[in-house]
Protein backbone atom coordinates (compact mmCIF):
# COMPACT_ATOMS: atom_id res chain seq x y z
CA UNK A 1 0.00 0.00 0.00
CA UNK A 2 1.17 3.53 -0.62
CA UNK A 3 1.46 6.12 2.09
CA UNK A 4 -1.62 7.81 0.72
CA UNK A 5 -3.70 4.64 0.64
CA UNK A 6 -2.94 3.80 4.27
CA UNK A 7 -3.76 7.33 5.34
CA UNK A 8 -7.08 7.31 3.51
CA UNK A 9 -7.93 3.99 5.12
CA UNK A 10 -7.25 5.41 8.60
CA UNK A 11 -9.34 8.48 7.84
CA UNK A 12 -12.23 6.27 6.71
CA UNK A 13 -11.92 4.23 9.93
CA UNK A 14 -12.10 7.35 12.05
CA UNK A 15 -15.18 8.62 10.24
CA UNK A 16 -17.09 5.78 11.87
CA UNK A 17 -16.61 7.21 15.35
CA UNK A 18 -19.52 9.15 16.81
CA UNK A 19 -17.74 11.44 19.21
CA UNK A 20 -14.32 12.36 20.52
CA UNK A 21 -14.54 9.80 23.32
CA UNK A 22 -14.83 6.90 20.89
CA UNK A 23 -11.96 8.25 18.87
CA UNK A 24 -9.71 8.60 21.88
CA UNK A 25 -10.75 5.22 23.17
CA UNK A 26 -9.56 3.72 19.91
CA UNK A 27 -6.27 5.62 19.89
CA UNK A 28 -5.62 4.70 23.52
CA UNK A 29 -6.37 1.08 22.70
CA UNK A 30 -3.85 1.18 19.87
CA UNK A 31 -1.36 2.70 22.27
CA UNK A 32 -1.89 -0.01 24.84
CA UNK A 33 -1.71 -2.89 22.41
CA UNK A 34 1.58 -1.93 20.94
CA UNK A 35 4.76 -2.39 22.92
CA UNK A 36 6.52 -1.89 19.64
CA UNK A 37 10.13 -1.26 20.40
CA UNK A 38 12.40 -3.92 21.85
CA UNK A 39 13.66 -2.99 25.32
CA UNK A 40 17.28 -3.06 24.12
CA UNK A 41 16.53 -0.16 21.80
CA UNK A 42 14.99 2.06 24.46
CA UNK A 43 18.31 3.80 24.90
CA UNK A 44 19.15 7.44 25.45
CA UNK A 45 20.47 7.56 21.89
CA UNK A 46 17.04 6.65 20.59
CA UNK A 47 15.22 9.05 22.90
CA UNK A 48 13.71 12.10 21.28
CA UNK A 49 14.20 14.98 23.70
CA UNK A 50 12.49 18.22 24.44
CA UNK A 51 9.01 16.79 24.62
CA UNK A 52 6.50 16.59 27.45
CA UNK A 53 6.07 12.95 26.60
CA UNK A 54 9.14 10.90 25.85
CA UNK A 55 9.44 9.05 22.58
CA UNK A 56 11.94 6.35 21.63
CA UNK A 57 12.48 5.60 17.98
CA UNK A 58 14.49 2.78 16.42
CA UNK A 59 15.13 2.59 12.70
CA UNK A 60 16.32 -0.20 10.42
CA UNK A 61 17.14 -0.06 6.72
CA UNK A 62 16.43 -3.26 4.79
CA UNK A 63 16.23 -3.88 1.03
CA UNK A 64 15.94 -0.19 0.30
CA UNK A 65 13.06 0.25 2.77
CA UNK A 66 12.83 1.79 6.22
CA UNK A 67 11.43 -0.08 9.22
CA UNK A 68 10.49 1.66 12.44
CA UNK A 69 9.73 0.65 15.98
CA UNK A 70 8.91 3.17 18.69
CA UNK A 71 7.45 3.74 22.12
CA UNK A 72 6.27 6.57 24.33
CA UNK A 73 5.46 7.00 28.00
CA UNK A 74 2.23 8.82 27.12
CA UNK A 75 -0.43 6.49 25.81
CA UNK A 76 -2.20 8.89 23.42
CA UNK A 77 1.13 9.77 21.85
CA UNK A 78 1.83 6.06 21.61
CA UNK A 79 -1.44 5.38 19.82
CA UNK A 80 -0.69 8.10 17.30
CA UNK A 81 2.84 6.82 16.86
CA UNK A 82 1.47 3.43 15.97
CA UNK A 83 -0.67 5.06 13.27
CA UNK A 84 2.28 7.02 11.89
CA UNK A 85 4.35 3.86 11.77
CA UNK A 86 1.55 1.96 10.09
CA UNK A 87 1.61 4.64 7.38
CA UNK A 88 5.38 4.90 6.92
CA UNK A 89 6.68 1.44 7.68
CA UNK A 90 8.31 -0.40 4.77
CA UNK A 91 8.39 2.67 2.53
CA UNK A 92 11.44 3.94 0.69
CA UNK A 93 13.38 6.92 2.04
CA UNK A 94 12.26 8.93 -0.98
CA UNK A 95 8.57 8.25 -0.37
CA UNK A 96 8.96 9.12 3.32
CA UNK A 97 10.77 12.38 2.60
CA UNK A 98 8.06 13.40 0.18
CA UNK A 99 5.17 12.26 2.38
CA UNK A 100 2.61 14.61 3.84
CA UNK A 101 0.95 13.17 6.94
CA UNK A 102 -2.43 14.77 6.35
CA UNK A 103 -4.33 12.07 8.20
CA UNK A 104 -3.45 13.48 11.63
CA UNK A 105 -5.21 16.71 10.80
CA UNK A 106 -8.08 14.88 9.12
CA UNK A 107 -8.80 12.73 12.18
CA UNK A 108 -8.83 15.87 14.34
CA UNK A 109 -5.55 15.46 16.19
CA UNK A 110 -3.58 18.21 14.50
CA UNK A 111 -2.72 19.66 17.90
CA UNK A 112 -0.28 16.78 18.19
CA UNK A 113 1.65 18.20 15.28
CA UNK A 114 1.68 21.67 16.74
CA UNK A 115 5.04 22.81 18.08
CA UNK A 116 3.29 24.63 20.93
CA UNK A 117 2.33 21.36 22.57
CA UNK A 118 5.90 20.10 22.57
CA UNK A 119 4.64 16.56 22.55
CA UNK A 120 6.55 13.74 21.02
CA UNK A 121 4.74 13.16 17.76
CA UNK A 122 6.00 16.15 15.82
CA UNK A 123 9.56 15.51 16.94
CA UNK A 124 9.21 11.88 15.95
CA UNK A 125 7.99 12.72 12.47
CA UNK A 126 10.89 15.15 12.06
CA UNK A 127 13.32 12.50 13.23
CA UNK A 128 11.89 9.92 10.83
CA UNK A 129 12.36 12.31 7.94
CA UNK A 130 15.92 13.04 9.03
CA UNK A 131 16.69 9.33 9.05
CA UNK A 132 15.10 8.92 5.65
CA UNK A 133 17.22 11.75 4.34
CA UNK A 134 20.37 10.18 5.77
CA UNK A 135 19.58 6.74 4.28
CA UNK A 136 18.75 8.24 0.93
CA UNK A 137 22.12 10.00 0.86
CA UNK A 138 23.84 6.79 1.85
CA UNK A 139 22.16 4.73 -0.85
CA UNK A 140 23.00 7.35 -3.47
CA UNK A 141 26.66 7.37 -2.39
CA UNK A 142 27.07 3.57 -2.34
Amino acid sequence: MTIQQTQDEIIADFELFGDWMDKYEYIIQLGKELPMIEEQYKTDDNLIRGCQSRVWLHTEFKDGKLLFTADSDAVITKGLISLVIKVLNGQTPKAIIESDLYFIDAIGLSSHLSPTRSNGLLSMVKQIKLYALAYQKKSVES
Partner: peptide
Protein backbone atom coordinates in the same frame (compact mmCIF):
# COMPACT_ATOMS: atom_id res chain seq x y z
CA UNK B 1 -1.43 8.07 33.95
CA UNK B 2 0.98 10.33 32.12
CA UNK B 3 0.16 13.97 32.94
CA UNK B 4 0.12 14.80 29.27
CA UNK B 5 -2.57 12.20 28.52
CA UNK B 6 -4.69 13.39 31.42
CA UNK B 7 -4.30 17.03 30.34
CA UNK B 8 -5.39 16.21 26.83
CA UNK B 9 -8.55 14.39 27.89
CA UNK B 10 -9.39 17.24 30.30
CA UNK B 11 -8.89 19.71 27.46
CA UNK B 12 -11.34 17.79 25.34
CA UNK B 13 -13.91 18.39 28.07
CA UNK B 14 -13.31 22.14 28.06
CA UNK B 15 -11.12 22.11 31.16
CA UNK B 16 -7.89 24.12 30.93
CA UNK B 17 -5.07 22.88 33.15
CA UNK B 18 -1.33 22.85 32.66
CA UNK B 19 0.75 19.71 32.31
CA UNK B 20 4.49 19.18 32.36
Amino acid sequence: IHPFDLGEILDKQGIAVRTG
